[in-house]
Amino acid sequence: MLACIGLLAVWQVASLVLKNDSFPTAIEAIRAIPDILGDKESLINILASLRRMALGFCVAVLVSIPLGLLMGRSRSVAAFFNPLLMVIYPVPKAALMPIIMLWLGVGDVTKTLVIFLGVSLPVIYHSFEGAKAVEEKMLWSGAAMGLSPAQRLVRIVLPAALPEILTGCRTGLVLALITMITSEMIARQSGAGNILFNALDMGQYDTVFAMIIIVGAMGICFDAIFERVRARLVRWSEPQFDLPLSFS
């Protein structure tokens, strides 16, 4: 918190010294925030962004976790998907946008799909690694109790790999925000990224900086909320239960 205030102070001083049109003071930028959030049009845009982000993130998580777990426990499933994922992993998902736009247009579907792709890979990867690391003897213990292979996957591999899976989801959440903004910069039609770039085109630099603060704040909030949920879900795996958590 102190660091944030410090950053704003440095910004304020720097912009006063530089006196550049394209570098508004921190106070000007912060003053522009209520204007954006008070504007119905902008708000609809931001909410549309968030809806796409939520949808892309949720679908990605729901598909990626089972896939990653299956890959982690089945050599043949891993052998099938791994090369594919290794190829897609380092490709910036935004670079795929032109093709997707060509096929699916510039609307919601394209942007949601890009978010989906961005989130999927870290979640698959961490679920895969988490499932691979599950102790064999733990599965044997479950098998001796009469759990079927499917039950073992859901009731042993999933909870045992949960800490690792949630690490992937946390990375995925940040990537969802990044790909959300990027997709809206490329397919300029609606959304938070669109407001940002329209403001830039029109030279409304205080709005540009205000949007950056809004998007940044959203990212910090989502991450903080997610971290709270995560810490609660995997309390059993934390080294010390009463360890002070960041953001709390």
Partner: peptide, 29 residues
């Protein structure tokens, strides 16, 4: 031909379910 509840293993590595409490582990079977 496979594992079954008529033969109960106890491993050197314990292999407890870490997300379950002591009671939860014992009740699992």
């Amino acid at each position: 031909t496979g594992p079954g509840p008529d033969r109960g293993p106890v491993f050197q590595e314990f292999a407890l379910f870490p997300w379950k409490t002591v009671l939860g582990n014992v009740m699992y079977g």
